[in-house]
Amino acid sequence: MTTTVAVFGSCNMDLVAYVGTAPKRGETVLGREFHTVPGGKGANQALAAAKAGAAVRMIGAVGEDDFGAEIRAVLQKSGVDVRGLRTVPGRSGTAHIVVDDEGGNSIVVVPAANAALDALADGDEDLIAGADSLLLQLENPFSGVAAAAAAGRRNGVRVVLTPAPAAPLSADLLSKVDLLVPNEHEAAVLAGAEDPHRALAALLELVPEVVITLGARGSLYGDRTGTWVEVPSFPVDAVDTTAAGDTFVGVLATALGEGAEVPEAMRLASAGAAVSVQRAGASSSMPTRAEISALLAAGH
């Protein structure tokens, strides 16, 4: 069964430098490679869901520059519906990423065109209303995220929020979220607790379902019925962890929309993330459903 996923979120061009060790403040280091790769948490999640088998609708904004045209083309090539991707005056958003030899990264995001996504445009609610899930993140103005969440709630769509970059969230926004998917750092910021289990318990007072991604330690799920699920990660050698979390969310939403039970959906999402970290780049690293299935079939 094909599921439909709407994404309201950011579109950036990732400017990625690969180094042995990331520079400290005031330090200059030599890099060995540089790539430009379409990304942004919204576009990443849209691409991950599309490659995992979902019918995806992207609501976002790009600039009138070459980066914007390339982002649009990459989304279209992956089968993403871009009717909701508006082009606005000025530059597209950029993410300036440094990746070290351990696969870790540090990122500076310049929103640019993404700042225009501060409200729903004509037709956006129709794109959301026909979806099974709506994926949201926090790289766009909160007013736009809140408006999209409200549209999702009005139309009975599962609202999935990735609270990144980490920031305080209003009670009104949280009241419209069905599933919150923070990483360990974001969960600690929102819950005021470093321990993931304590953070999960605190977050369940705010939203009905939570999945906390724990990097190499896997992921942790809980809901208000008292169900708790822990799924380990797949042991792989990480090359670049950029967008691993977005891959996880895109695959998770696809699997849940197809009717998978939570543990199976988390396992598929973990497998997707495991494939992605073995490749360089954000959107360029995301696996197809066949590649995810191949990892699972390999006995992992």
Rank of each mutant, 00 (worst) to 15 (best):
L252V: 04
V98H: 07
S78C: 11
E205P: 00
A147M: 12
V239L: 14
G63N: 03
R57D: 05
S284R: 13
Q137S: 11
A167L: 09
P111K: 08
E64K: 01
L190S: 04
S276E: 04
T94H: 11
A191W: 08
A193M: 12
A6P: 05
A73Q: 14
L174D: 11
E125M: 03
S175K: 03
A6I: 07
L214A: 08
V159H: 04
V37F: 12
A46G: 08
V262S: 07
L220R: 05
V16R: 02
A22F: 02
V251M: 07
A131G: 02
S10T: 01
T242N: 09
A187D: 14
A238S: 14
F248I: 07
L173M: 05
V189E: 13
H300R: 13
D66F: 10
H96S: 15
Q45I: 06
A273E: 09
T227A: 13
T4E: 12
P232N: 11
D126W: 01
T227P: 02
A202Q: 11
G259H: 08
A265W: 04
D101S: 13
V7A: 10
P232T: 07
A95H: 02
A191G: 05
T2S: 13
L161P: 02
S10E: 13
L174H: 06
A202P: 00
A115K: 08
L203S: 07
D66G: 13
G218S: 10
A188I: 05
A238Y: 07
S92I: 07
L296G: 06
A244R: 10
P263S: 07
V145P: 01
G218C: 11
G90R: 08
W228L: 15
A129N: 06
K41M: 05
P182T: 02
A199G: 09
L296Q: 09
E70S: 15
